[in-house]
Nucleic acid binder design. Structure first.
Lengths: 219, 219
DNA sequence: GGATGTGAACGACTTCACAGCG
DNA sequence: CGCTGTGAAGTCGTTCACATCC
């Protein structure tokens, strides 16, 4: 049974889910600012970049401690590292991908994952014709080896890009293998133990969402 | 300049954005329930399926008028159609796709789009080697023809799956061609006129998000 | 002056709890 | 009795406004 908000909380000062959801955006823009040579950035600059208010930015960043200097702004480099620490991407994440279709291939190609501390450790597919082939430099493994390989590589995240019918089974296997988080692209509600984190991305729903917004706007 | 909440509102009884965001989930589960032969469904059943409380379900569905019957529940079929009407998928949406990579191919393959009233009208790519090839039964067109074809097909939604550098240019072209909504997969903040709706899907961020949740959970 | 940090006001969403109907 | 619809309360997130500091 999945409670609406399982979400176990960390120790540090309470951090809202909404604010957490913007952290990777801050990071991305800060990295750009740093590359452009800005040693310091203001809440207004960040707000402009993310499309939110400066007050919001300050509230979010207050979670990281008092990094800002009145009259000046935030030191870009320090802020980036404070975010990374808080974020957990100062360590490395090993990711396994289950279901090697077009979507998985698109994700494997995404540049920037490696920079952000993500490493693809292994690929799996139930289709025996795909097993043994390579995708983006990694060999595709048979599903039977999932448990073994997740354990031996110490993978902690699983990416599920299989059809809806197979998703729960795959998720169960990943959990059994000891994965700590699952990124699910299948259009179903996965049932997971509370200690395993879950992020859902439902592409079909996004398009429906858009149609809905247009529908509402067009009156 | 993009205000945090441009969102022009519809006429009917005010509908919260959060509740709107669940509509496609309701629809999906209701269709499943109907297939399973349930002519009637309760707020608890729906809540269980979506992972939210029954009170929440009733609040959401109250927007559609008084469809529920105390002691009984909601008539499945009527509810589905009430949702569809409210949703705008009782009409057809023509979608053009710009940037035919793996991600676009994955989306083109998504079953269910057609059932939900979406039709892929045309594909475009800047890569001249791809132009003329076919993907999922549609010919890939040169970017130059975008305006012309959007207009002739009456396409109202655009799906942007190009690299970040090209995304704003593509979006501008789509807007100029008269598209009413854009589903953007590029990891940048698009600047659009307020009358064009926008939904962003940033896949890289979802993985970071997951890492973050795991990080927080693991204390 | 320009920018941060933050209490207080505000607004949005969710849950509670219960009246009322079938 | 079961289940809906809905005010009221509660929770969460955002914006305002201003004291404070460089």
């Amino acid at each position: 049974m999945t409670k609406p908000r399982p979400e176990p909380a960390g120790r540090e000062a309470r951090l809202s889910r909404a604010s957490a959801g913007r952290f990777s955006l801050y990071l991305r823009h800060l990295e750009r600012f740093e590359q452009e040579g800005l040693t310091t950035v203001s809440s207004s600059q960040l707000g402009e970049a993310l499309g939110i208010t400066h007050a919001q930015v300050r509230k979010d960043l207050a979670n990281l401690g008092h990094l800002g200097q009145p009259g000046i702004g935030y030191p870009t480099h320090e802020l980036i590292w404070a975010l990374r620490r808080r974020f957990g991407i100062d360590r490395e994440w090993a990711v396994v991908v289950v279901g090697v279709g077009n979507l998985a291939r698109a994700l494997l190609r995404y540049r920037g994952f490696r920079d952000q501390g993500f490493r693809f450790a292994a690929l799996f597919d139930a289709d025996t014709r795909k097993v043994g082939q390579r995708a983006e430099g990694l060999e595709i493994m048979a599903m039977e080896r999932l448990g073994e390989i997740v354990r031996s590589t110490g993978a902690n995240l699983g990416l599920v890009t299989v059809p809806a019918e197979a998703a729960q089974t795959v998720a169960d296997a990943l959990v059994a293998a000891g994965v700590r988080g699952i990124l699910n692209f299948a259009p179903i509600v996965l049932r997971l133990p509370a200690e395993v984190s879950l992020v859902n991305v439902d592409l079909a729903i996004q398009l429906e969402q858009l149609a809905f917004l247009v529908h509402l706007a067009g009156k």
